[in-house]
Amino acid sequence: MTKTAGNSVVKIDTTGILYKELNARLREIASDSVEKVELYNVCGQRYIGTDLNRPIQIDIYGTPGNDLGAFMNGPKIVVHGNAQDGCGNTMNEGEIIVHGHAGDVLGLSARGGKIFVRDYVGYRAGIHMKEYKEKKPTLVIGGTAQDFAGEYMAGGVLVLLGLNLAEGEKHKAKYIGTGMHGGVIYLRGEVEKYQLGPEVGVAELDEKDNQVLRTLVGEFAGHFGYPADKILNHKFMKLYPRFLRPYGRLYAY
């Protein structure tokens, strides 16, 4: 199943290989000094990138299964295709770049790392992301997202660019940022008040926000070959948590 090209690149045709076997092989490869792995004909294998714990690049051709990069700690994954549900689940460190779209709960509970998705994503993207010390999870979504994007967000940055929306078309997601108590969402285009969770405030971007956005959109544009200026030359909304403790007054003692 393995073809070795040079010392540092390993190519694997994953046809007919189940995830357990594939991930065992990746663990073995990661323990050598391999810098890059190319996986071909990937078709639904789960948990790729889990338990590798070092910076290694994995290029995926095809469609990886759920929980791509779950608990990931270090690798960089480039998907030449679409990602499914749970991509970047509880990720600690690393990078996932998806040349396509992604399913539900993208970046669930991520603590660190970066995820770039070229097209749209499913429900509850960025749910309960948190940040810790120098770690700040970042999601940049090129298209739009379904309901509950940024739900329960406790930290990190979620950028929603809406590039797949037609001229004048609006984001349709509702309950954006429901329960949000940390972090920030930058949303290109407009949403109505009713589309936001009650805990979400809306503000203009200040210079610091613009700086963050320029960097992230620059990286996004670099990954997918888009003109960054054209993306940035548009109205953005900053969505922030109005309360750091949204559920402070619920109880009688």
Binding site: K20, F71, G86, Y152, G179
Partner: peptide, 30 residues
């Protein structure tokens, strides 16, 4: 900051999803 634990695990809405997390953890611990 308040540490909020959501009522469900948002990657588990079914037995199949539970299997997914069980095996994610088996993978994560080899």
């Amino acid at each position: 900051t308040d540490a909020l634990s959501p009522a469900p695990q948002h990657d588990i809405y079914s037995i199949e999803d539970l299997a997914q997390l069980v095996y994610a953890l088996k993978e994560a611990t080899n």
